[in-house]
Amino acid sequence: MVRKVLTAGLIVYVLGAFVWVVLAGFARNEQLLNVACDPTRELWHDINIAFAKDYEKEHGVKLGIRQSHGGSGSQARAVIDGLPGDVVTLALWTDTDAIRKAGLIEPNWEDKLPNRSLPYISTIVFVVRKGNPKNLHDWPDLGRPDVSVITPNPKTSGNGKWSFLAMWGAITTRGGTEADALEYVSQIYRRVPVLDAAARGATMTFAQKKIGDVHLTWENEAQLEVQEANGELEIVYPKVSVLAEPHVAVVDKVVDRKGTRATAEAYMKFLYTEPAQEIIAHHYYRPTNPAVKARTADRFPAIELFPASKVGPTWDAIQKRFFAEGGVFDQIYATGKK
Protein backbone atom coordinates (compact mmCIF):
# COMPACT_ATOMS: atom_id res chain seq x y z
CA MET A 1 0.00 0.00 0.00
CA VAL A 2 2.68 2.47 1.10
CA ARG A 3 4.74 1.46 -1.89
CA LYS A 4 1.81 2.06 -4.24
CA VAL A 5 1.21 5.53 -2.82
CA LEU A 6 4.90 6.34 -3.14
CA THR A 7 5.05 5.09 -6.72
CA ALA A 8 1.92 7.02 -7.64
CA GLY A 9 3.33 10.14 -5.97
CA LEU A 10 6.58 9.79 -7.86
CA ILE A 11 4.80 9.36 -11.18
CA VAL A 12 2.59 12.38 -10.55
CA TYR A 13 5.65 14.42 -9.55
CA VAL A 14 7.64 13.50 -12.66
CA LEU A 15 4.65 14.04 -14.95
CA GLY A 16 3.95 17.38 -13.31
CA ALA A 17 7.58 18.39 -13.74
CA PHE A 18 7.45 17.30 -17.37
CA VAL A 19 4.36 19.39 -18.06
CA TRP A 20 5.93 22.38 -16.28
CA VAL A 21 9.06 22.13 -18.42
CA VAL A 22 7.07 21.91 -21.64
CA LEU A 23 4.91 24.89 -20.69
CA ALA A 24 7.96 26.87 -19.56
CA GLY A 25 9.04 27.02 -23.20
CA PHE A 26 6.20 29.41 -24.02
CA ALA A 27 7.53 32.93 -23.91
CA ARG A 28 6.67 35.00 -20.89
CA ASN A 29 6.46 38.69 -21.58
CA GLU A 30 5.98 40.47 -18.30
CA GLN A 31 9.66 40.84 -17.45
CA LEU A 32 12.59 42.76 -18.81
CA LEU A 33 15.82 40.88 -19.43
CA ASN A 34 19.09 42.76 -19.37
CA VAL A 35 21.91 40.83 -21.02
CA ALA A 36 25.01 42.36 -19.52
CA CYS A 37 28.74 41.87 -19.50
CA ASP A 38 30.37 40.13 -16.59
CA PRO A 39 31.58 42.68 -14.02
CA THR A 40 28.41 44.80 -13.94
CA ARG A 41 26.45 42.50 -11.58
CA GLU A 42 26.48 44.76 -8.53
CA LEU A 43 25.77 47.88 -10.63
CA TRP A 44 22.67 46.44 -12.29
CA HIS A 45 21.43 44.95 -9.05
CA ASP A 46 21.21 48.46 -7.58
CA ILE A 47 20.03 50.18 -10.76
CA ASN A 48 17.25 47.61 -11.22
CA ILE A 49 15.94 48.20 -7.72
CA ALA A 50 15.97 51.97 -8.24
CA PHE A 51 14.30 51.77 -11.64
CA ALA A 52 11.64 49.30 -10.50
CA LYS A 53 10.78 51.65 -7.63
CA ASP A 54 10.53 54.62 -10.01
CA TYR A 55 8.49 52.63 -12.49
CA GLU A 56 6.04 51.45 -9.86
CA LYS A 57 5.53 55.00 -8.64
CA GLU A 58 4.81 56.19 -12.17
CA HIS A 59 2.85 53.29 -13.66
CA GLY A 60 1.64 51.41 -10.62
CA VAL A 61 3.10 48.20 -12.01
CA LYS A 62 5.64 46.03 -10.21
CA LEU A 63 8.34 45.41 -12.75
CA GLY A 64 10.59 42.37 -12.69
CA ILE A 65 14.01 42.80 -14.26
CA ARG A 66 16.13 39.72 -14.92
CA GLN A 67 19.87 39.74 -15.37
CA SER A 68 22.19 37.58 -17.39
CA HIS A 69 25.94 38.01 -17.03
CA GLY A 70 28.88 36.58 -18.93
CA GLY A 71 31.77 37.49 -21.19
CA SER A 72 30.69 40.33 -23.49
CA GLY A 73 31.35 38.38 -26.69
CA SER A 74 29.58 35.24 -25.45
CA GLN A 75 26.61 37.32 -24.33
CA ALA A 76 26.31 38.92 -27.79
CA ARG A 77 26.49 35.44 -29.31
CA ALA A 78 23.73 34.21 -26.97
CA VAL A 79 21.44 37.10 -27.94
CA ILE A 80 22.08 36.35 -31.61
CA ASP A 81 21.21 32.71 -30.91
CA GLY A 82 17.94 33.71 -29.28
CA LEU A 83 18.54 34.74 -25.68
CA PRO A 84 15.57 37.15 -25.40
CA GLY A 85 17.33 40.18 -23.92
CA ASP A 86 15.26 43.38 -24.11
CA VAL A 87 18.38 45.44 -23.61
CA VAL A 88 22.06 44.65 -23.99
CA THR A 89 24.64 46.39 -21.84
CA LEU A 90 27.84 44.95 -23.20
CA ALA A 91 31.43 46.02 -22.88
CA LEU A 92 32.21 46.78 -26.49
CA TRP A 93 30.79 48.54 -29.48
CA THR A 94 31.64 45.53 -31.68
CA ASP A 95 29.64 43.14 -29.52
CA THR A 96 26.51 45.29 -29.68
CA ASP A 97 27.07 45.86 -33.37
CA ALA A 98 27.37 42.11 -33.97
CA ILE A 99 23.75 41.87 -32.80
CA ARG A 100 22.88 44.67 -35.23
CA LYS A 101 24.59 42.71 -38.01
CA ALA A 102 22.44 39.68 -37.13
CA GLY A 103 19.41 41.89 -37.73
CA LEU A 104 18.13 42.12 -34.16
CA ILE A 105 19.05 45.76 -33.57
CA GLU A 106 18.23 48.52 -36.04
CA PRO A 107 21.06 50.46 -37.72
CA ASN A 108 22.31 53.67 -36.10
CA TRP A 109 21.54 52.30 -32.65
CA GLU A 110 24.33 54.41 -31.23
CA ASP A 111 22.37 57.63 -31.89
CA LYS A 112 19.15 56.47 -30.24
CA LEU A 113 20.19 57.25 -26.67
CA PRO A 114 21.96 60.34 -25.31
CA ASN A 115 25.75 60.70 -25.39
CA ARG A 116 26.23 58.06 -28.12
CA SER A 117 24.46 55.47 -25.96
CA LEU A 118 27.08 55.82 -23.25
CA PRO A 119 25.52 56.33 -19.79
CA TYR A 120 28.96 55.78 -18.28
CA ILE A 121 32.54 55.22 -19.33
CA SER A 122 35.38 53.39 -17.64
CA THR A 123 38.99 52.41 -18.03
CA ILE A 124 41.47 49.64 -17.36
CA VAL A 125 43.66 49.84 -14.25
CA PHE A 126 46.05 47.57 -12.33
CA VAL A 127 45.33 45.56 -9.21
CA VAL A 128 48.48 44.37 -7.41
CA ARG A 129 49.24 42.46 -4.22
CA LYS A 130 49.61 44.26 -0.88
CA GLY A 131 52.59 46.64 -0.83
CA ASN A 132 53.04 46.33 -4.60
CA PRO A 133 55.92 43.81 -4.22
CA LYS A 134 56.80 43.83 -7.91
CA ASN A 135 56.86 47.64 -7.97
CA LEU A 136 54.42 48.03 -10.85
CA HIS A 137 53.46 51.62 -11.64
CA ASP A 138 53.02 51.97 -15.35
CA TRP A 139 52.58 49.91 -18.47
CA PRO A 140 56.27 49.32 -19.29
CA ASP A 141 56.66 47.57 -15.89
CA LEU A 142 54.31 44.81 -17.06
CA GLY A 143 56.76 43.85 -19.80
CA ARG A 144 59.40 42.72 -17.29
CA PRO A 145 60.14 39.00 -17.50
CA ASP A 146 59.34 38.37 -13.80
CA VAL A 147 55.82 39.79 -13.99
CA SER A 148 52.82 37.60 -14.74
CA VAL A 149 49.62 39.34 -15.76
CA ILE A 150 46.05 38.14 -15.21
CA THR A 151 43.50 39.30 -17.75
CA PRO A 152 40.63 37.46 -19.43
CA ASN A 153 40.60 36.14 -22.98
CA PRO A 154 40.18 39.00 -25.50
CA LYS A 155 38.29 36.67 -27.82
CA THR A 156 35.34 36.27 -25.44
CA SER A 157 35.63 39.04 -22.86
CA GLY A 158 35.17 42.79 -23.11
CA ASN A 159 37.60 43.27 -20.25
CA GLY A 160 40.09 41.16 -22.20
CA LYS A 161 39.72 43.29 -25.33
CA TRP A 162 40.02 46.58 -23.44
CA SER A 163 43.11 45.27 -21.61
CA PHE A 164 44.67 44.34 -24.93
CA LEU A 165 43.90 47.75 -26.44
CA ALA A 166 45.18 49.51 -23.31
CA MET A 167 48.50 47.64 -23.52
CA TRP A 168 48.83 48.29 -27.22
CA GLY A 169 47.83 51.94 -26.99
CA ALA A 170 50.06 52.57 -23.97
CA ILE A 171 52.99 51.91 -26.29
CA THR A 172 51.77 53.49 -29.53
CA THR A 173 50.32 56.69 -27.99
CA ARG A 174 53.57 57.40 -26.21
CA GLY A 175 55.94 57.28 -29.15
CA GLY A 176 56.36 53.54 -29.59
CA THR A 177 56.04 51.90 -32.99
CA GLU A 178 53.56 49.18 -33.89
CA ALA A 179 56.42 46.69 -33.85
CA ASP A 180 57.27 47.73 -30.27
CA ALA A 181 53.64 47.29 -29.29
CA LEU A 182 53.46 43.84 -30.85
CA GLU A 183 56.64 42.76 -29.08
CA TYR A 184 55.43 44.16 -25.74
CA VAL A 185 51.98 42.60 -25.94
CA SER A 186 53.39 39.23 -27.10
CA GLN A 187 55.78 39.15 -24.13
CA ILE A 188 52.92 39.78 -21.71
CA TYR A 189 50.46 37.23 -23.16
CA ARG A 190 53.18 34.61 -23.24
CA ARG A 191 53.34 34.88 -19.45
CA VAL A 192 49.60 34.99 -18.72
CA PRO A 193 49.16 31.86 -16.58
CA VAL A 194 45.35 31.59 -16.87
CA LEU A 195 43.25 33.15 -19.60
CA ASP A 196 39.70 33.21 -18.18
CA ALA A 197 36.65 33.53 -20.40
CA ALA A 198 35.18 36.52 -18.60
CA ALA A 199 36.10 39.37 -16.29
CA ARG A 200 34.78 37.95 -13.02
CA GLY A 201 36.50 34.64 -13.57
CA ALA A 202 39.81 36.47 -13.95
CA THR A 203 39.11 38.38 -10.74
CA MET A 204 38.57 35.10 -8.89
CA THR A 205 41.79 33.72 -10.37
CA PHE A 206 43.76 36.71 -9.13
CA ALA A 207 42.04 37.48 -5.83
CA GLN A 208 40.86 34.08 -4.57
CA LYS A 209 43.26 31.64 -6.16
CA LYS A 210 46.10 34.16 -5.77
CA ILE A 211 47.64 33.53 -9.18
CA GLY A 212 49.63 36.26 -10.94
CA ASP A 213 51.29 39.56 -9.97
CA VAL A 214 48.97 42.09 -11.55
CA HIS A 215 45.35 41.98 -12.66
CA LEU A 216 44.32 44.19 -15.58
CA THR A 217 40.67 44.98 -15.13
CA TRP A 218 37.89 47.52 -15.24
CA GLU A 219 38.26 50.38 -12.80
CA ASN A 220 34.99 49.40 -11.10
CA GLU A 221 35.95 45.73 -10.89
CA ALA A 222 39.32 46.73 -9.44
CA GLN A 223 37.67 48.86 -6.73
CA LEU A 224 35.27 46.04 -5.80
CA GLU A 225 38.07 43.49 -5.85
CA VAL A 226 40.21 45.59 -3.51
CA GLN A 227 37.26 46.26 -1.17
CA GLU A 228 36.53 42.54 -0.91
CA ALA A 229 40.16 41.56 -0.35
CA ASN A 230 40.49 42.97 3.21
CA GLY A 231 43.71 44.87 2.53
CA GLU A 232 45.40 42.08 0.60
CA LEU A 233 45.24 43.96 -2.71
CA GLU A 234 45.89 47.49 -3.94
CA ILE A 235 44.89 49.56 -6.95
CA VAL A 236 47.52 51.17 -9.14
CA TYR A 237 46.51 53.83 -11.66
CA PRO A 238 48.88 53.84 -14.63
CA LYS A 239 49.74 57.22 -16.16
CA VAL A 240 47.62 56.59 -19.24
CA SER A 241 44.98 54.04 -20.08
CA VAL A 242 42.27 53.30 -22.57
CA LEU A 243 38.92 55.12 -22.60
CA ALA A 244 36.56 52.15 -22.30
CA GLU A 245 33.14 52.79 -23.78
CA PRO A 246 30.54 50.21 -22.79
CA HIS A 247 27.54 51.11 -24.95
CA VAL A 248 23.97 50.18 -24.08
CA ALA A 249 21.19 49.40 -26.56
CA VAL A 250 17.61 48.25 -26.82
CA VAL A 251 17.25 45.02 -28.82
CA ASP A 252 14.57 46.09 -31.30
CA LYS A 253 13.48 42.67 -32.53
CA VAL A 254 13.01 41.34 -29.00
CA VAL A 255 11.11 44.30 -27.56
CA ASP A 256 8.84 44.47 -30.61
CA ARG A 257 8.01 40.80 -30.29
CA LYS A 258 7.47 40.95 -26.54
CA GLY A 259 5.77 44.35 -26.65
CA THR A 260 8.17 45.78 -24.07
CA ARG A 261 9.63 48.62 -26.12
CA ALA A 262 8.27 51.46 -23.98
CA THR A 263 9.51 49.88 -20.75
CA ALA A 264 12.90 48.98 -22.17
CA GLU A 265 13.42 52.49 -23.51
CA ALA A 266 12.38 54.02 -20.21
CA TYR A 267 14.85 51.67 -18.49
CA MET A 268 17.72 52.84 -20.69
CA LYS A 269 16.77 56.53 -20.38
CA PHE A 270 16.64 56.13 -16.62
CA LEU A 271 20.40 55.51 -16.69
CA TYR A 272 20.99 59.15 -17.61
CA THR A 273 19.00 60.57 -14.68
CA GLU A 274 20.89 61.96 -11.71
CA PRO A 275 19.86 59.25 -9.24
CA ALA A 276 21.03 56.54 -11.65
CA GLN A 277 24.24 58.41 -12.37
CA GLU A 278 24.87 58.61 -8.62
CA ILE A 279 24.52 54.82 -8.38
CA ILE A 280 26.84 54.47 -11.36
CA ALA A 281 29.47 56.67 -9.71
CA HIS A 282 29.00 54.82 -6.43
CA HIS A 283 30.02 51.61 -8.21
CA TYR A 284 33.08 53.36 -9.70
CA TYR A 285 31.86 53.66 -13.26
CA ARG A 286 32.66 57.14 -14.54
CA PRO A 287 29.35 59.02 -14.92
CA THR A 288 28.68 61.08 -18.06
CA ASN A 289 26.21 63.52 -16.51
CA PRO A 290 28.27 66.71 -15.94
CA ALA A 291 26.72 67.58 -12.57
CA VAL A 292 27.26 64.11 -11.10
CA LYS A 293 30.68 63.94 -12.71
CA ALA A 294 31.72 67.15 -10.94
CA ARG A 295 30.27 65.98 -7.62
CA THR A 296 32.06 62.63 -7.71
CA ALA A 297 35.35 63.75 -9.27
CA ASP A 298 37.32 62.78 -6.14
CA ARG A 299 36.42 59.12 -6.69
CA PHE A 300 38.11 59.03 -10.08
CA PRO A 301 41.82 59.90 -10.39
CA ALA A 302 42.33 62.01 -13.50
CA ILE A 303 44.54 59.86 -15.66
CA GLU A 304 44.97 60.44 -19.35
CA LEU A 305 42.51 58.29 -21.32
CA PHE A 306 43.06 57.58 -25.00
CA PRO A 307 40.10 56.42 -27.13
CA ALA A 308 40.14 53.14 -29.05
CA SER A 309 40.34 55.19 -32.27
CA LYS A 310 44.00 55.84 -31.39
CA VAL A 311 44.62 52.12 -31.87
CA GLY A 312 42.57 51.52 -35.01
CA PRO A 313 40.48 53.68 -37.36
CA THR A 314 37.17 51.87 -36.76
CA TRP A 315 35.91 49.15 -34.48
CA ASP A 316 35.53 46.80 -37.42
CA ALA A 317 39.17 47.39 -38.32
CA ILE A 318 40.28 46.81 -34.71
CA GLN A 319 38.23 43.65 -34.44
CA LYS A 320 39.53 42.33 -37.75
CA ARG A 321 43.15 43.16 -37.11
CA PHE A 322 43.49 42.09 -33.49
CA PHE A 323 40.74 39.73 -32.39
CA ALA A 324 39.32 38.00 -35.47
CA GLU A 325 40.27 34.43 -36.41
CA GLY A 326 43.97 34.47 -37.31
CA GLY A 327 44.37 38.07 -36.10
CA VAL A 328 47.18 39.51 -34.00
CA PHE A 329 45.98 37.89 -30.78
CA ASP A 330 45.70 34.45 -32.37
CA GLN A 331 49.20 34.76 -33.77
CA ILE A 332 50.61 35.80 -30.39
CA TYR A 333 48.85 33.00 -28.61
CA ALA A 334 49.81 30.41 -31.20
CA THR A 335 53.51 31.30 -30.96
CA GLY A 336 53.26 31.54 -27.18
CA LYS A 337 52.08 27.95 -27.03
CA LYS A 338 55.08 26.61 -28.93
Binding site: A24, G25, F26, D81, G82, R257
Partner: peptide, 20 residues
Protein backbone atom coordinates in the same frame (compact mmCIF):
# COMPACT_ATOMS: atom_id res chain seq x y z
CA UNK B 1 19.89 31.54 -36.50
CA UNK B 2 18.63 28.09 -37.54
CA UNK B 3 15.38 27.33 -39.39
CA UNK B 4 14.04 25.28 -36.45
CA UNK B 5 14.85 28.01 -33.95
CA UNK B 6 13.35 30.74 -36.10
CA UNK B 7 10.18 28.69 -36.65
CA UNK B 8 9.82 28.01 -32.93
CA UNK B 9 10.34 31.68 -32.15
CA UNK B 10 7.64 32.69 -34.62
CA UNK B 11 5.28 30.37 -32.79
CA UNK B 12 6.22 31.78 -29.41
CA UNK B 13 8.19 28.79 -28.15
CA UNK B 14 11.65 28.85 -26.70
CA UNK B 15 13.81 25.76 -26.26
CA UNK B 16 17.31 27.00 -25.52
CA UNK B 17 17.71 29.68 -22.85
CA UNK B 18 14.59 28.14 -21.28
CA UNK B 19 13.79 25.02 -19.19
CA UNK B 20 13.15 22.69 -22.18
Amino acid sequence: QTPIGAWLKDHGYQIIFAPP
